[in-house]
Design a protein around this nucleic acid. Structure first.
Length: 479
RNA sequence: GGCACCGUCGCCAAGUGGUAAGGCCGAGGUCUGCAAAAUCUCUACCGGCGGUUCGAAUCCGCCCGGUGCCUCCA
């Protein structure tokens, strides 16, 4: 039983075997930092965070690199729009990235390199390509000559003739071939620029990933990830550059995540149908978003909708309530007193089932089903007096499964509090009044004045409050 | 136009050769003063038509419907 990953290059699920045993090099395309992240960015981040966590769980030492693209037309435009320095734009949106992704429990990669910190490495690669006649200078720009790379199109399954007949490539007289792409762009006056053998300019988009992955992970590394939209041209161009430069295939497994859709259409900036994470967090808990985004397999498209997020909220709430119940039941148990506790957890059928699902190209949808079944078993056992040790093993196995896929990042109390704050934002409930009504109702219940008790509850219901009577108290929450 | 992918219960979503996981919603039972929560039970022959096979949601062909990439994009 071993991990299989769908490799875009072969179009098949392949057994994942790292170059060096138990050591994995993984590079994932991050974001261009000129705006707040949206749900699509979150999906990519979550998918590769989940892969990162799982690889580590399997005992690998993972060197995980996720870059920031911090120089680009959009950044320069944004700087002009906001009347601030382009580096200020970067600073602002990198900080926002960390805030917004942090709420999703995205672990920090090993390194988060920025393009502009690697200009020398990029220049070196470009020079090498020019020296090999695989790139040429033209009026201060430097282009990669795709004709020099016979395998161009191998990742995306395109052939050069089809691409040209598509006629959607930029018309540019300075290029020898319309499909050639920029390695180095001559800077316009007033734009940020770096010195180069071809005059002042800035790097093209694709070269940064080739240069940084090479620097941090070597000429050939294990996994390169990103959204499906990066397959062509970005990753195709990366292959061309890196192969051209080193003569080696840079990547052994190409992994791409599917899109987040709105009404079956790709969420994108250009269509304007995107939701920033900041907007989403106003209505839904970040962990709910994470759960939603891993509730289908990472390569499938996933439709972002109110209904789906509400469903996910219900599931996440049930998980945490079950967890709270289990914690309560286990609070006096010292798991260290259970012999071979960790081994029992590790060898539990729940854990094994989880690995089987994850090994099949990270089938987190199946893991969700397993967590739901696990929850049902936990809830069933909650009022059961015996088998506490077995229950502890089971519960810990269940929690571990959730944690490996990045769930249960809060305590049940934290989750409840945070969820309450989100739900209460629009309701603005008067907590004192609610507690008074509950006290009144319980007084009525004690004197068996059911009519009055029901009247109090109806009033609460009308406010959007749900009551749950327990043995000697009444819990309440927002519906 | 070229190249991919997708179409499974009302909704979401696994399953890729042996008679359909899970979640939401719905119906009924247990529990409860009644509820709620929890739990139990019930609810699909898999877009259509052919073909291969002892056997297909799963393979092949055609058709219908949808999406993506071919320009920046996670």
């Amino acid at each position: 039983m071993s991990l299989k990953l769908f490799n875009t290059m072969s179009g098949k699920k392949e057994e994942f075997i790292p170059q060096k045993e138990k050591q994995v090099g993984m590079y994932v395309c991050g974001v261009t930092v000129y705006d707040y992240c949206h749900v699509g960015h979150a999906r990519a981040a979550i998918v590769f965070d989940t892969l990162y966590r799982y690889l580590q769980y399997l005992g690998n030492d993972v060197c995980f690199i996720r870059n920031f693209t911090d120089i680009d037309d959009k950044i320069i435009n944004r700087a002009n729009e906001e009347g601030i320095d382009w580096q200020e734009v970067n600073r602002k949106y990198i900080e926002a990235f960390h805030q917004d992704m942090g709420k999703l429990n995205i672990a920090s990669p090993t390194e988060e390199p920025k393009a502009t910190d690697h200009i020398p490495q990029m220049l070196e690669m470009i020079q090498s390509l020019v020296d090999q006649d695989k790139a040429y200078e033209s009026g201060g720009d430097v282009f990669y000559s795709i004709k020099s790379f016979k395998d161009y199109g191998c990742l995306s399954g395109k052939n050069i003739d089809d691409l040209q007949s598509g006629a959607r490539v930029e018309v540019n007289d300075t290029k020898k071939d319309p499909l050639d792409f920029a390695l180095w762009k001559k800077s316009k006056p007033g734009e940020p620029s770096w010195e180069s053998p071809w005059g002042p300019g800035r790097p093209g988009w694709h070269i940064e990933c080739s240069a940084m992955s090479k620097k941090y992970l070597g000429d050939t590394f294990d996994i390169h990830g990103g959204g499906k939209d990066l397959v062509f041209p970005h990753h195709e161009n990366e292959i061309a550059q890196s192969c051209g430069c080193t003569g080696k295939q840079p990547v052994r497994y190409w992994v791409h995540n599917g899109f987040v859709n709105i009404d079956k259409e790709k969420m994108s900036k250009s269509l304007g149908n995107f939701f920033t994470l900041r907007d989403v967090y106003k209505k839904y808990h970040p962990e709910v978003l994470r759960l939603f985004l891993i509730s289908s397999q990472y390569r499938s498209p996933i439709d972002f909708s109110k209904k789906n997020l509400e469903d996910a909220t219900k599931v996440m709430t049930r998980f945490y309530e079950g967890l709270a119940g289990a914690n309560e039941k286990l609070k006096d148990l010292d798991t260290n007193s259970i012999s071979d506790f960790q081994d029992k957890v590790k060898e539990h059928t729940l854990t094994k089932g989880f690995k089987t699902a994850m090994n099949d190209d990270l089938n987190t949808a199946v893991v969700m089903a397993q967590l739901n079944e696990g929850l049902r078993n936990i809830n069933s056992a909650l009022n059961n007096e015996d088998g506490l040790e077995d229950f502890a093993v089971y519960t810990h196995a269940w929690i571990n499964v959730g944690k490996v896929i990045g769930l249960f990042s809060r305590t049940p109390e934290q989750f409840e509090t945070e969820l309450f704050a989100i739900k209460n934002k629009n309701l603005n409930l008067d907590v004192k009044k609610i507690e008074q009504l509950i006290a009144n109702r319980n007084a009525a219940r004690r004197s068996k004045n059911w009519a009055e008790a029901d009247r109090c509850r109806d009033e609460l219901t009308a406010m959007g409050v749900l009551t749950e009577d327990t043995a000697n108290s009444t819990e309440w929450k927002i519906k």
